Every structure is written in C-alpha cells, then in structure tokens.
Computed example of a mutant assay.
Amino acid sequence: MRALLVLAGALAIVACQPAPDPGETIVAGPAAERVARETGPLKTAIFAGGCFWGVEGVFSHVRGVKSAVSGYHGGTERQARYELVASGVTDHAEAVRVTYDPALVRYDELVRIFFSVVADPTQRNRQGPDVGAHYRTALIPTSAEQLEVARAYLAQMERSGLWQRPIVAGIERAQAFFPAESRHQDFVARNPGHSYVERWDAPKVAALARLYPAHYSAAFQRG
C-alpha cells in the first residue's frame, strides 16, 4: 500500500499539467433536436470531460448555472482523493456537478455547450494533455428526461459529420459524487495566471463567449 501511495503521489504531480497539444478542437455543435422538457425547481447534472478545472470554469460562466462543483464520480468515498484519482488507480472520473435553473438554461443547451467548447467527444480516456480513464468524457444524467436528451444528442452528433473522428463520448449511470478538495474549487477564477489555465481553460471560456453569447455570463458563479 505504501508503494501504491508513493506512485499515486508521483503521478499526481503531472496531473492537469501542460503537455504537447494532441489536437483538441472547438466545434460549434448543432442545436439539439430533442429539447429538454424540465420545469420546476433547480436541476442537477454531472459532466465528466478531462481535468475538472476547465469543465467547472466554463459552466461557471453560463447564465442560469447556480453552482458548479468539481469532484469525483463513481468509485468509493475512501479513495475519492486527488492523489489517488489522478494516479488512475481508482474507478472515479474527474467530474463536475452542475446545478442550474431550467427556466434559464436547458439541459440540452448545457450538453451542446459541453461538447462544443469543453470536451472533445472524439478523444477516448483523455482530454487535451490529460490521459487516463479518470479523464474520460461522459454525460452523467440524473433523471430519465436527461437520459433521453443525452442519448438523442450523441446520436445527433454522430449524424452531423461536424467532427472529423468518431464520437467516443459515452453516457454513465449516475453514482455517488464526491466533492473535490477545496483547493480545486473555483480553480480557474482563483488562478487565472496558472500556466494550465492560460493554455487550456481560458480559451474554452473565450470560446463560450464567442459561440454562445446569449448563454455567456462575464461573472464567475462561484461554488
């Protein structure tokens, strides 16, 4: 176990760090044919798409999002620690739990934004410089309505021909979500000069503002 922890700590050092660009692209995804029909109080959905800093950073600038929390989806609570998850020895995925007002932004619109500017749906078990199953890209619906929308949008993406490589992003059954350590929350807002943020996350926020100005909020919605 001690050797495992040492390995985990060593590997965590390189997590969410700049690396050679593998060709991540920004694609303006199609408007959803299957529109989410959600009403009532705030809703919650989970998105996994590489390092959670950028996922949280983008959704925190979306109008109607009331909270975006970085964390670990799946796996066990005992292993839900950054050093272990980042080493790839657990079953978790780095993910973000998004709470939103469906009267202001629909789930299908969040999914469109996610695949347009946050996560490249053609990269398997990686995003940008971050490699491993814990960086897998997946929609994690928390309701039957979200599940229908997620399935329909992935199928629509396949038919669209907008992406040059096959769509490999998936859908995962919602399991336990464990919030990440406090140092990872609101990371983009608190560390704008971090080299990783400047290289990988700030361009995603800029793309949100450029492609979806009606959904963009200049204010960062913390926590």
Rank of each mutant, 00 (worst) to 15 (best):
Y100T: 13
G128M: 02
V111E: 10
Y107K: 05
V118G: 06
Y107A: 05
V111R: 07
D108T: 08
V117N: 04
L110K: 13
R97G: 13
D120M: 07
R112I: 05
L104D: 13
D101F: 07
F115K: 10
R126T: 02
E109P: 04
T122N: 01
E109M: 06
V111A: 10
V117L: 14
R124N: 10
R97N: 10
F114T: 04
V131F: 09
F114N: 09
F114R: 09
T99C: 04
R106K: 15
R97T: 05
P129R: 11
D120A: 08
P129A: 11
P129E: 10
L110C: 15
Q123W: 07
V131L: 12
Y100S: 02
D120V: 08
T99D: 07
R124D: 09
R97Q: 15
Y107R: 03
A119R: 13
P129M: 12
T99V: 14
Y100F: 15
D130Q: 13
F114Y: 15
P129I: 12
A103L: 14
Y107E: 08
R126L: 02
P129N: 11
D130H: 05
R124K: 15
P121K: 07
P102C: 03
V105A: 06
R112S: 12
Q127P: 08
V131C: 01
P121N: 02
R124T: 05
S116Y: 01
R124C: 09
I113D: 09
T99R: 11
D130M: 02
P102I: 04
G128P: 00
F115C: 11
P121W: 00
T99E: 10
D130F: 15
I113R: 09
L110N: 10
Y107H: 04
F114E: 10
T122G: 00
Q123S: 07
L110I: 03
F115T: 14
Q123M: 12
S116K: 01
V131H: 10
V98Y: 09
P129Y: 07
V98T: 11
V117S: 12
V98K: 09
G128E: 00
L110F: 10
T99I: 11
Y107G: 10
V98W: 13
D108Q: 08
D120C: 06
